[in-house]
Write a protein that binds this DNA or RNA. Structure first.
Lengths: 207, 207
DNA sequence: TGATCTATCTATAAGTA
DNA sequence: TTACTTATAGATAGATC
């Protein structure tokens, strides 16, 4: 998440995983503390770390954690399930959001293409094609387009990798959404390729 | 934490608290999901939200949460307490870190003061005072000092507010660290004031 | 109230010591 | 390995609709 966007997948390298675990567990505990303080709610977290599987890391105090958990376990099954979020629901929710983002992106892309077309042919309000545009203006226009293109490419790349992570996770959990996901992927890749090969002045943005 | 650094304290405003709860709970669940995936560990979180105190928000799936919690509760008391982190321990750990930061900052401050003094008198390698320094060089020097001062002031402000939050929390929980904290605070404020009134070309950085 | 935007603040992946 | 730094990805407070 810094210097490089990390893939949401199991870290095979042992020392890297260890380091990530320490950092992220600390971050998580801080977040839970903040949520609890800011909203005045009871909360607890239990994490079985990769070191000693017999001794979990727990927040907050032993007594509080116990009270929270006992309370939780004493609820009738039905009540308990009400607000529970399992991984499948969690991922599906995120997928729905992503699909929305993709649609929005496509709308933006269409708008952009039209604007781009207009800028290329440089038609004025009366339908006249402008012939003798100053060089500086052209340069400014090119720069502006370039900047916009970069922003769009960035967002596309971001969506793409997020999507890939989700696909991996879902495939791993055996959830049957392959068709949907493939369609969504085709949409993203399609858009990405349109821009990558659309005859723009720069060729390749990949490292 | 965005547009304004929020104080780590109970949010009285109801709608604001509600909004914060929703956003942060979502963020927390995402983080737990990531930790679990990246490090391949079992984890769960239970949060009793401000809405319905009977129905907690839970992650991950009901069965997983139960397995994790049952496992946790079945451990002997001693084992369980090993890695548990209660709020007091949590805060004390953070305080220790802060004290370290303060010490470091003070070392940096001393070094800076010396450098600053040297720059003011502009003594060369042979001990001669340089008289006819170019105007541009002086300007550059002033700029550099100015930038450094800003950075230092920023870090001091940051430490100060973090400290204040911690003091608040600790006072609330009745932990007996007043003397220590006051000493630390005096240190920070002292440093802050030294620089604020040290005769530098800008007077006030507070909003 | 809830969804969306965006300027800032925070967390953290890599790098360095 | 742990600690510290830094550049970047991610979270989110407050505003707007």
């Amino acid at each position: 998440m810094a210097r490089k966007k990390v893939k949401l997948a199991w870290i095979a390298n042992d020392s890297a995983q260890r380091s990530t675990y320490k950092k992220r567990k600390q971050g998580l505990m801080k977040k839970i503390n903040e949520l609890s303080t800011l909203c005045g709610v009871e909360a607890c977290a239990v994490v079985y770390g990769p070191y000693d599987p017999q001794v979990p890391d727990v927040w907050p105090s032993p007594s509080d954690a116990h009270r929270v958990l006992t309370q939780f376990k004493s609820l009738p099954e039905m009540e308990r399930n009400k607000k529970m979020m399992n991984q499948e629901a969690f991922l599906k929710e995120r997928m729905a959001k992503m699909r929305e983002q993709i649609k929005k992106q496509q709308r933006e892309n269409r708008e952009f293409e039209i604007t781009q077309l207009m800028n290329r042919t440089l038609i004025d309000g009366t339908g006249q094609i402008l012939q003798n545009v100053e060089t500086k203006e052209l340069k400014d226009l090119a720069w502006m387009i370039d900047e916009k293109m970069k922003r769009i490419q960035k967002r596309i790349d971001s969506l793409r990798s997020t999507m890939e992570s989700a696909v991996q996770q879902i495939n791993g959990t055996g959830i049957q959404t392959t068709t949907e996901m493939e369609a969504a992927q085709r949409q993203i890749w399609g858009v990405g390729n349109d821009f990558a090969n659309g005859g723009m002045p720069y060729a390749d943005n990949t490292p």
